[in-house]
């Protein structure tokens, strides 16, 4: 842009150029997926090498700090419980090995169901149009204005204990609106596009046009929307758990934080009790955010950088 006559182009080495050729080789995508996979790996490897019975109220000393720290009673961390124990003697590592994949699972399942609903409704609204479109559009617009946490708090308090899958299903009922709207808008504009007209001229069936011509072009948007929904679902799930409304018998990250708060972990300086699950949630969100940013660059080439 400015008139510096240096050859910036020359500085762009061959390997940098090559790295750009496939948009999927995106560093953000790479790190984001890496973080999430690390959490999944923690769940799998933990299950193989760690005694998960330690996640239940046990014989271990209470409120033991992680290795290398000392708690207020002057007890030092021990390698039997490398990241400490909670207020009722449960091993933190075992809690996290079970809890972290559980939180991720709720998010993925809720988002998957929400997306499927969204794809179905969005295509129906955009393609069929007319009355169907009106109903779906009004419904999703209304649902968008309702804060999900509010409704879920009421539902779950009435329900009592729920399973993880049940909670995912409930949350899924609140994450289908934005994919519906997104897909509807895309389908409406794509319906007018030249290649859809060409496909109609080629005698293609409606199903062919929807799933073979349109859907492949929606993939980047769908991925992006899916990841955003996973984030929303996890936030909602953790929100419920921290209020003590999630599954009562299954360890989750949110439930661990709830118990820590309940037991006054903050004033007792038991930072590992609430801090480690919070850190893991943070990593999970950063991973999801990175994937989302990466996907954005994949679907929108203008955001791609040259260096």
């Amino acid at each position: 842009m400015t008139g510096v006559p240096g050859s910036r182009a020359g500085e762009l080495k061959g390997w940098q150029m090559r790295r750009l050729e496939s948009p999927w080789m995106n560093p953000k995508l790479f790190w984001g997926a890496g973080l999430l996979l690390a959490i999944v790996a923690l769940g799998i490897i933990g299950r193989l090498f760690w005694n998960l019975d330690l996640a239940f109220t046990g014989a271990a000393p209470l409120k033991l700090p992680p290795v290398g720290f000392e708690n207020l009673r002057g007890q030092e961390g021990a390698w039997v419980h490398p990241i400490g124990t909670d207020g009722s003697g449960r091993d933190m590592l075992a809690l996290i090995v079970i809890g972290a994949p559980n939180s991720l699972f709720v998010g993925l399942l809720a988002s998957l169901i929400g997306m499927s609903l969204g794809i179905f409704l969005g295509f129906s609204a955009g393609f069929i149009g007319g009355r169907t479109d009106d109903i779906i559009r009004v419904l999703s617009d209304v649902m968008i204005t309702i804060p999900p946490l509010l409704i879920l708090v009421v539902v779950q308090s009435a329900w009592g204990d729920v399973s993880l899958t049940m909670m995912a299903l409930l949350i899924a009922g609140f994450v289908w609106q934005s994919p519906t709207r997104l897909i509807r808008a895309q389908v409406l504009s794509m319906k007018q596009s030249g290649y859809v007209q060409m496909a109609r001229l080629s005698g293609a069936s409606t199903m062919h046009i929807m799933f073979r011509e349109m859907l492949p072009n929606l993939v980047p948007y769908l991925f992006g929307s899916f990841i955003a929904n996973v984030t929303t679902s996890i936030v909602t799930a953790v929100g419920l758990e921290v209020l003590g409304l999630g599954p009562q018998r299954i360890p989750t990250l949110g439930r661990t934080i709830y118990e820590a708060i309940n037991a006054g972990a903050l004033i007792q300086n038991l930072w590992w009790w609430w801090g480690i699950p919070t850190l893991l949630l943070g990593l999970m969100f950063i991973g999801l955010l990175l994937i989302n940013l990466g996907l954005d660059e994949v679907s929108n080439p203008r955001l791609r950088k040259l260096q």
Partner: peptide, 10 residues
């Protein structure tokens, strides 16, 4: 529009 007539996916 020759640019719109081809599905970019295929």
């Amino acid at each position: 529009d020759p640019y719109a007539c081809f599905n970019p996916f295929y």
